[in-house]
């Protein structure tokens, strides 16, 4: 499992850059970023090198932010690898709320996802021989 920070951003000019500036000033390095956006607001999801520090810096600056645990795996660099894992999760009735990919420290592709049943997901992935992070 890995930790991600979710930040609520209203749709306003410069809001993402304000958020990134807070992280910059706290000396935080971003490892991944994904935005779910709608017409009126977005939710920024980030993984950083120091999530606790990043969270406290964002909260102090007034950003509505929270720490969320994701199930994360390293995906082998070959065709169909991700599909096999997702099919296994689907067949095991694990529902994925959202997911995104990022590069691991070793350059390999990793994916993180939020699910309402993380323990079941971890067990299924272990059965498939996936490399959990």
């Amino acid at each position: 499992m890995i930790k991600q920070i979710a930040v609520f951003l209203e749709n306003r000019e410069g809001r993402v850059s304000e958020c990134c500036k807070v992280l910059k000033d706290a000396g935080i390095n971003l490892r991944s970023m994904s935005i779910a956006d709608t017409k009126d607001f977005g939710i920024l999801r980030i993984i950083t090198d120091d999530n606790e520090l990043a969270l406290s810096a964002l909260k102090t600056a007034g950003f509505l932010s929270s720490l969320v645990e994701l199930v994360a795996i390293e995906v082998p660099d070959k065709s169909g690898a991700l599909a096999d894992l997702l099919i296994a999760l689907y067949e095991g009735s694990v529902n994925i709320e959202y997911m995104y990919s990022f590069a691991g420290a070793n350059g390999h592709a990793q994916i993180g996802f939020k699910t309402t049943s993380p323990e079941k997901a971890v067990a299924l992935l272990e059965q498939c021989g996936a490399k959990l992070i």
Partner: peptide, 8 residues
């Protein structure tokens, strides 16, 4: 400020 939101 006390709620956690990570989903649209």
């Amino acid at each position: 400020p006390h709620i956690a939101l990570d989903e649209v």
